[in-house]
Structure formats: structure tokens, C-alpha cells
């Protein structure tokens, strides 16, 4: 079994950062287009983003809250759809021209 298949088995082992490294972004510094609402304990939906986000933008910090680093965001909207009912995040498009720039799409 390859490393990649192991990663699939656990769902977490693979480093998605290596994939994002290929992409072009124009980061809107200091103006993140996604923000997580303050929370003590994350909802199930919010917690799901730590694996469901295809860019690995969400992670759990040491004190148990979910944090987001959205520089690698692919703007798919998966996190927005998963948390639509719980309202855990505020999601907007990046300002015009900013964000991911697909070279091939």
C-alpha cells in the first residue's frame, strides 16, 4: 500500500499544502473573505470543515476551537454549504480580482 492510500485510509495524513503550492493567488492581505464566529466548543458542522475543506484551510487549535487560514482557499463554497444551517462562518467572495487565479481551471 502506498503512502497516499494510507492517507486516504486515515483521511488526514496527506499534506494538501503541497498541492496548493502549484496555484496562483492574489491574497487580499488583512481582509479575509471568510471569518469564523467566536465559539468555545465548535459545532459538529464547524468541526467537519477540518477535513471537508479541499484546501485544508480549517484546523483545530490546542484549546479545541476551529481556526481558519484562508490564503489557500479555492473558493469552492463547501464550508459555506456545510455550515449554512449553523451559521458558524461568515463567507463572502473576495474583493474583485483577489483570491485564487486559476491558470487552467
Amino acid at each position: 500500500m502506498t503512502d497516499a492510500m494510507d492517507a486516504n485510509a486515515t483521511g488526514t495524513g496527506f499534506k494538501v499544502e503541497e498541492k496548493l503550492f502549484q496555484n496562483r493567488y492574489l491574497v487580499d492581505v488583512g481582509r479575509p473573505h471568510i471569518t469564523i464566529k467566536p465559539h468555545d466548543v465548535p459545532s459538529k458542522a464547524l468541526l467537519a470543515l477540518t477535513h471537508a475543506c479541499p484546501a485544508g484551510c480549517y484546523s483545530k487549535n490546542d484549546s479545541g476551537q476551529v481556526e481558519a487560514t484562508i490564503d489557500g482557499c479555492l473558493e469552492c463554497g463547501t464550508c459555506r454549504v456545510i455550515t449554512a444551517k449553523t451559521g458558524d462562518i461568515e463567507w463572502n467572495y473576495p474583493r474583485g480580482g483577489f483570491g485564487v487565479l486559476f491558470k487552467f481551471g
Partner: peptide
């Protein structure tokens, strides 16, 4: 399907790696 990802704990990039391999 998105709800399958949300509930299963699996990652899209993990699936892609396995598919490629």
C-alpha cells in the same frame, strides 16, 4: 456529495491521491 464528506471524515485530496495511485 458534500454531506458524505462532512459525515465521513474523509478528505477530497486524500481520495484524489488514492485515485491517482
Amino acid at each position: 456529495i458534500v454531506s458524505d464528506f462532512a459525515e465521513s471524515g474523509k478528505t477530497a485530496y486524500g481520495l484524489l491521491e488514492a485515485f491517482k495511485n
